[in-house]
Nucleic acid binder design. Structure first.
Lengths: 190, 190
DNA sequence: CCGAGGCGTTCGTCAAGCCGAACATATGAC
DNA sequence: GTCATATGTTCGGCTTGACGAACGCCTCGG
């Protein structure tokens, strides 16, 4: 291999391994089943989930399609489950949220894939939602008040201007912490 | 190979090929140079850019790091035309000399067709936009402050909690009327 | 004019990924 | 209890991707 001053490219094998196990678990499938559907051998998948090897694109792609994950989910960061954008920061991706008094502002027209809700809630309100369809993502931007929002157990406290996005295919909550708490919720279908 | 009802997984080889050429051109590097830096052989890269083969993860990853692309850029859709946003990672778009900032919260992933922005603006700011692609619709929900929003000439005044949707393939404006005006903007592609 | 050095492509060799089979184990039917 | 089926892991062998070298092509510069 010689000395390589070339770009140190540590392939995220671990990320892939854990991601594969995680997504497979989420789908409730066995290793054999996934391998069969994806058209790869059990041995290959087993190795990959063990964190060994250097998979080919074809293999990875087949697994992605089978598990219905956008590919980036396999390589990208080790899953920043709940990420928050404080008023003034950049991007986010993470957990789950729900609604208390939600007003449907724009239903999903044929072709589009997002609904826009307005949420009004008061303190003492805990709105817990069961998981939605796989792949659903919710985006919440707090307009006023304070609220605890996100995947159950990983919810974060939002203040006005804060934004959070999270997978809504997990149990999630929206708990208002102050009177007159308002928020926008965008529900995005896969 | 028997009938395979397994997921038909056509690997986006073409996307990768074109993406590699594109990004390499953007960086102004020669094939040899990229290959050398990434630590892959010229032959391998040549094959890939020709759209042949089935690269290993290690190979792809090395190229991504060298070209400084988030990986998804290699597989993602064949580049959605004149999309303004190459700022999937970038933070805020600020209007020159005025108090207007739009933050991209969630870029359109491959398949989805809406971007979510947060807008912060101050009074005296008039943000006029040229028409977007035909069929584009913008949804705005005002979180705080006051603003005049909509198609130029037909804009309506929004107060906190108000919502408006309008065709964005016509000239349109966003004019803050009060300090600390915040809003959510969902840009929906046809 | 022609040699040096860059470019991108093509050709053989070797290593490695992928597959299928055999393997241990675990759960449920009868 | 025993067979039957499903799980995930490990073992040869074939296939194939990656490498390095040689190639043709072009542009400089002596």
């Amino acid at each position: 291999m010689a000395q390589q001053e070339q770009v140190s490219a540590k392939v995220p094998l671990e990320s892939i391994a854990t991601a594969l196990r995680r997504e497979r678990a989420r789908a409730g499938l066995s290793l054999s089943e996934v391998a069969r559907r994806a058209g790869v051998s059990k041995s290959t998948l087993s190795h990959l989930e063990a964190g060994n090897g250097n998979p080919s694109l074809e293999t990875l792609w087949a697994l992605c399609v089978t598990l219905d994950v956008p590919f980036s989910r396999l390589l990208d960061p080790p899953r920043p489950h709940t990420q928050v954008i404080r008023a003034g920061e950049g991007a986010a991706v993470a957990a789950a949220g729900s609604d208390y008094r939600a007003t449907l502002l724009a239903a999903s027209p044929p072709g589009a894939r997002r609904d826009v809700y307005r949420i009004d809630a008061g303190p003492g309100t805990v709105r817990a939602s069961d998981p939605h369809m796989p792949g659903v993502v919710e985006h919440v931007l707090l307009a006023s008040g304070r609220a605890l929002v996100g995947v159950t157990g990983e919810a974060v406290e939002l203040r006005p201007g804060d934004y959070v996005a999270y997978p809504a295919d997990l149990p999630h909550v929206f708990e208002a912490l102050a009177p007159d708490t308002r928020a926008v919720l965008v529900l995005e279908h896969p």
